[in-house]
Computed example of a mutant assay.
Amino acid sequence: MNTTDPDLLSRASADARTDRRFRWLVTGAGLFVLATLLAVALSMLWGGREAFAKFGLAFLWTDQWDAVQQQFGALVPIYGTVVTALLAMLIAVPVSFGIAFFLTDIAPKWMRTPIGAAIELLAGIPSIIYGMWGLFVLVPLLGEHVFPWVDEHLGQLPWLGPLFQGPPLGLGMGTAGLVLAVMVIPFISSVMRDVFLTVPGPLKESAYALGATRWEVVWDVVLPYTRSAVIGGIFLGLGRALGETMAVTFVLGNAHALTFSLLEPGNSIAATIANEFTEADSPMYLSSLIALGFVLFLVTFIVLAISRLLLSRLNKREGN
């Protein structure tokens, strides 16, 4: 074959140009993500410059939020955001693990498809629907039947008692955490189910053949095999819980008060911005709300960075 054929040379040159264009295209897509992330962070930092200039870093640990006196601090919203998200994860992770394991190893085949479809439907429900359900169904139920019992019995515990003391309003950080847990369960359980299905069948069968129980197979075989993906799914749910707005706004109570009780109303960063952005009647008020958005950006970024660090360490430990 003649390697100097003009048609072959022309085709090779065209393929090289196409490959360069494709490389530029995908490189531009990657740089676009970084540029968008940087632009969002800088725009919020610029919008909150007046608040940061006046309050400095004290903005992060000041619990005062007084629009009349023009004194603002982010401690209460930060605290409410972190507490409700962590409470949601404490509830959602075990439940999601149970759902995923049930669908992959215990449920009969005829039951797996409808339950899996139900989980996907739950993931697609808008957050405002969860908020309305929480306000009109969950809040009265908890306020009348659950929180009074919690206050009477758990509120007397020596160390954890302050977490469960308070008026049975139904609104509060505990309710918000429960609603968030219901919202993130479909995401975490879907990820866990998909990664559990990747475990080779012979690997589990060999463990059963050696006399391992079902729990031992899960704990010693399935989880170590899928550990990185499971942690990634958990942090994905945590990121959604940190940034949730409408559902939390309905049930959190939206009170700028620092309280350690899960039964009392509190506030979160997203709920504060959603409730008060249209009421910001001064440049300092508006700047403080935008500064809150920048703080939420930082909190989410730190959480995701920690997840990436954990995953990289796990991969390094596993030799990947």
Rank of each mutant, 00 (worst) to 15 (best):
M89D: 00
A181H: 06
D194Y: 07
G28S: 15
A39I: 05
P202C: 02
T62M: 10
N267E: 09
T104I: 02
G80Y: 07
P167S: 15
A67N: 11
K54S: 14
V83Q: 10
A209M: 09
T272K: 15
L286S: 02
T113M: 07
L157Q: 05
I306W: 04
R11G: 08
L60T: 05
A35S: 14
A241I: 09
G98N: 04
V222T: 12
E152G: 11
A35H: 00
A274Y: 10
T259I: 10
S189L: 06
H256G: 05
L42V: 13
I119R: 06
L263V: 05
N254Q: 03
L203M: 14
Y130E: 07
I91G: 07
I234N: 04
V230P: 07
R317S: 14
E216W: 02
I129G: 01
R21G: 10
G232S: 09
I106M: 09
K54C: 00
I273P: 03
Q70E: 15
P140F: 10
G211W: 11
S268P: 06
E279R: 14
W46L: 12
M192P: 03
V146M: 02
L304F: 06
F297E: 05
G116C: 11
E120V: 02
L286R: 07
F147Q: 04
L242E: 09
P167H: 14
A107K: 00
V146P: 00
D220Q: 14
R317P: 05
I188Y: 01
N315L: 12
A29S: 11
R308S: 13
N315D: 15
F250T: 08
L292K: 04
G201T: 08
D63H: 12
L171F: 14
R11N: 13
T249A: 15
G177S: 00
L90V: 15
S287F: 03
A100F: 14
V182Y: 01
G177V: 05
E276T: 13
T18G: 15
G177T: 10
G293V: 03
F301I: 12
G174Y: 11
F52Y: 13
L8M: 07
E279H: 11
V191T: 12
M44V: 10
F97A: 13
I273H: 01
L238M: 15
L87E: 01
H256A: 14
A257K: 12
I91E: 03
